[in-house]
């Protein structure tokens, strides 16, 4: 995110600034639909769509070129997904100047922590995520982003959409 955009976003003051953290999954799409449905008629809501792309380690690729290509493909794919989500929000009545879409590419120990860092930076009052509906075993082995956010968020509300 460039500095101008960041300054603009954090300067949103008392507006209802909502961080909608998404990926390409069906549960993220459901979260977008929910926000569109629930907040579409509000005139003072600002929605920051955010997707985190985990910058993969060099270990996964035989060459740096392949790593760069993987990242570029991923970025392009996510740009398409974000544009689709933005359209859903616009169709629900949220005006164009009240929706921003951001892709953050970064090394991540935890995606949940990365989302909360963005929330803090942008001073969003609500974080919205979808719940993947993973099993107990899966959560144990891989962790759960929505649980991480629920347990570690502060100075904001959290909405987890099933």
């Amino acid at each position: 995110m460039n500095e101008a955009t960041l300054t603009e976003l954090v300067g949103r003051g008392d507006e209802r600034h909502l961080l909608l953290a998404v990926d390409e999954s069906a549960n993220s799409r459901r979260a977008v639909m929910y926000v569109a449905d629930f907040f579409g008629s509000y005139r003072d809501v600002f929605v920051s769509l955010l997707t985190i792309i985990q910058e993969p380690s060099e270990d996964y690729f035989p060459t740096e070129e392949k790593r760069r290509r993987w990242l570029e493909d991923k970025r392009q794919a996510m740009a398409g997904v974000l544009e689709e989500y933005r359209r859903i929000l616009l169709d629900a009545g949220i005006t164009e100047e009240r929706v921003a879409a951001n892709i953050s590419v970064r090394p991540c120990v935890s995606i949940g922590d990365a989302i909360l860092e963005e929330q803090e930076k942008l001073r969003c009052c609500i974080v919205v995520v979808g719940r993947r509906g993973i099993s107990h075993d899966e959560e144990f082995i891989f962790g759960s982003t929505s649980n991480k956010i629920l347990h570690h968020a502060h100075n904001c509300a959290v909405m987890v959409i099933e």
């Binding site: 991540c108 082995i141 891989f142 982003t145």
Partner: peptide, 15 residues
Amino acid sequence: YNYLHRESMFSLDLQ
């Protein structure tokens, strides 16, 4: 060994 982790980078080590 390495693997593409999801939410938590270290959960498999902890397990």
